[in-house]
Design a binder for these strands. Sequence first.
DNA 1: TAATATTACGTATTACGTAAAGATT
DNA 2: AATCTTTACGTAATACGTAATATTA
Lengths: 116, 116
Amino acid sequence: MTLDELKAFVSIAESGSFTNASTQLHRSQPAISRRIDLLEDELGAPLFERQGRNVILTAAGEALLPHAQTVLAAVRDGQRAVEKLNENSREVLSIAVVGTIADSYLVEALRAFQVE
Amino acid sequence: MTLDELKAFVSIAESGSFTNASTQLHRSQPAISRRIDLLEDELGAPLFERQGRNVILTAAGEALLPHAQTVLAAVRDGQRAVEKLNENSREVLSIAVVGTIADSYLVEALRAFQVE
DNA sequence: TAATATTACGTATTACGTAAAGATT
DNA sequence: AATCTTTACGTAATACGTAATATTA
């Protein structure tokens, strides 16, 4: 089991589709599909019922979801805890772009990056 | 961040050395060393103070440890939750060995395998 | 010098994305 | 037909172990 697999699983469960999860996680759809495929293999049980458009959690999926969410939350908490200690020693990142981009795409790109 | 990195980190913290962790996790020492190296890079902070023989947690390591333990516990809980649902449909694994081994190594090997 | 951690490096595994196919409404 | 998921597959990244190199008691 890997964190990427759990991220994919939770994202699908919360967003309702593989496609939504793929955009949330900045991956292609097949990449998400593979992660779930592997996770289901490891666990020996299907996690979603694929009924055409809508994706529904199986019993195994329902059983796993809260634990998976706990895992991801604990990972975030751990990262934040270390970040707090690093606050004193921040680093500088310089970004150089051509002027025409600075006003248009750059702002949006930085915003999207920050969200992650 | 990956689960293997967290496993290595927790194992070292709990066992007191990279070497102990490497045997616990059935990996070579360099593999463990590399996992920690990567984890420290990602977090931007050292997790252990390497003072010769004994390995001590840094402030960042202390901050991370409880969260990492939570992560690993939640992973185990999730696996168990799904396993419970699978209990009805167990599978059979047949193992064939030469007779002389059956009495000596096999028992120990199965015990070691089960512990994981 | 004995025990431990880190580099170096070659091989094997795994992961991604694109493209194509399958399936469902 | 349109939307979504899965296969197939080639390339790129990652992980492991062995061997060699520090480093410390």
